[in-house]
Design a protein around this nucleic acid. Sequence first.
DNA 1: ATGGTAGCACGGCTA
Length: 253
Amino acid sequence: MLIATWNVNSIKARHEHLGAWLDRRRPDVVCLQELKSIEAKLPVELFTSRGYQLEALGQPTYNGVAIASLRPITDVERGLPEGDEGQARVISGVIDGVRIVCAYCPQGSEVESPKFAYKLRFFDALIPHIAARLACGPLILAGDINIAPLPDDVWDDVEMKDQVSYHPLEHERFRALEGLGLIDVVKPRLAPRTYTFWDYRELSFRRKRGMRIDHLLVTADVAARVTGAGVDIEERKKEKPSDHAPVWLTLGE
DNA sequence: ATGGTAGCACGGCTA
C-alpha cells in the first residue's frame, strides 16, 4: 500500500503532472496541499476517472487540501476549527482502519510577523486535535508541515538558525507531535540531505538549496508495517513543477 | 538589486 503526500501548488496548474504521476506511481492514497481552488472548480474527473475517491476542503486563491484514495474513505472531518482561523488547511478520513490527517500547516512568513504567531497558534491547536484522535486508533499525519526538524533537513543550518521553518519554537511543536507517539518513518530511509521543497527563486533546486518540510508521521502500529519510504525528486525536475516533491511510504498488510 | 519566481487573478498577497 503506497501512501503519499504532495504540495502541488495549485491543482489546476499541476493537472498534467499530477495525472502522469498518479498513472506512474498509482498511490493507494495521496494527500494533497495548496489546491488553490474552490471545491466547485476542482478537476474531480482527474481522480474519479482513475478510480479514486476524492475528499476535499477548498478555498478561493489560497490553501486547500484533499485526500484521494483507491480504497473507501470514511469518517471525513474537514477543517481545524480550533486553530485554522477559517483557512482550508486540514482534512482527514479513515482508510483501512487508519485515520489519515492531511495538513497544510502555515508557512509563517518571517519570525517577527503576525503570520509566525498564527503558525504557532495553528500547531497549538493541531497537537491536541491529533492527540484526541490517537485515542481512536492508528493514525498518519501527512502533509506540508512547514518545519524542517533536523540540521540536515535544511541546506545550511547555520544560515537557517532561528529562521522560519527552522526556529526553536517550531522545533518545540514538532517534538510535541513526536511526543504524542508519532514517528518520522521517512527520515531514516532517506539519503542525508534529501529535501522535499526548493524555492522557485534563486535557482534553489539547481543549487540544492532545499528543505525537508513535508512529512509522514505515523503511530507505532503503522510504523511496524512500513516497508519503504522516499521522495519523488524527479517531479521537481520537470517543466513548470510544483516547488514541492511527493513524499511517500509503503505499508505491508 | 530589501532582489529572485510562481500562482491566482488582474493588484497585491502568499509562499
